[in-house]
Amino acid sequence: MHEMSIAMAVVGQVEEAAEAGGARAVTLVRLQVGELAGVVPDALAFCFELACAGTVLEGAELVTVSEAGRARCADCPAEWAVGMPPRLCCPDCGRAGGVELVSGRELRILSVTWEDDPDGGPGRTREPISEEA
């Protein structure tokens, strides 16, 4: 299950940033997941919880923000939602060559919220901590 390797990579990157920022506890991680990234959100959430155990992220909430897959035709001005399974032929001119995916493959940490006040005061949010997970 590649969701576990993704979860471990996200936890590793967030843990590194949180430690550098003096975090006491990470409470929330927002992750952008493209429709075409091949990630099952429920499986990722399960794996994320397991990967967080024993780290500064233990108990953190994972919020996934879905990004629709979109494509653009190189031969005409058309841009469209590709859906699942992806429709990679231009709906306007019918051409399949030169189709460019413009969104939907993202896997990006959007923001992280952590507590850094030793008295349990409000945490802070850092956006983004990295380009790709």
Rank of each mutant, 00 (worst) to 15 (best):
A25V: 00
V26S: 00
L28V: 07
V29S: 01
V29E: 01
V29L: 04
R30G: 01
R30C: 07
Q32I: 02
Q32C: 01
V33M: 03
G38V: 13
V39H: 06
P41Y: 11
P41T: 12
D42K: 10
D42T: 14
A43D: 07
C47E: 06
C47T: 07
C47R: 06
F48M: 07
E49A: 15
E49Y: 00
L50K: 13
A51P: 12
A51W: 11
A51Y: 11
G54S: 08
T55R: 09
E58Q: 13
E58F: 07
G59W: 03
G59L: 03
A60P: 03
A60I: 05
L62K: 06
T64Y: 04
V65Y: 03
V65F: 04
S66A: 15
S66R: 14
A68K: 15
G69A: 10
G69M: 10
G69C: 10
R70P: 01
A71W: 11
A71C: 12
R72Y: 05
R72C: 10
R72A: 14
R72G: 04
A74Y: 04
A74C: 08
D75L: 10
C76F: 07
P77S: 14
P77F: 11
P77G: 15
E79I: 10
A81Y: 12
V82W: 06
V82M: 06
G83I: 10
M84K: 11
M84L: 15
P85M: 03
P85N: 03
P85I: 01
P86L: 09
R87G: 08
R87A: 14
L88I: 14
L88D: 08
C90S: 12
P91C: 07
G94N: 05
G94C: 05
A96N: 02
A96Y: 00
A96C: 04
G97I: 01
G98A: 10
E100S: 12
E100Y: 02
L101H: 03
L101V: 15
L101Y: 05
V102Y: 06
S103E: 05
G104I: 09
R105A: 07
E106V: 03
E106G: 02
E106Y: 02
E106A: 02
L107D: 01
L107K: 02
R108D: 06
R108V: 00
I109E: 00
L110Y: 00
L110W: 01
S111I: 01
S111G: 09
S111L: 01
V112W: 02
T113F: 00
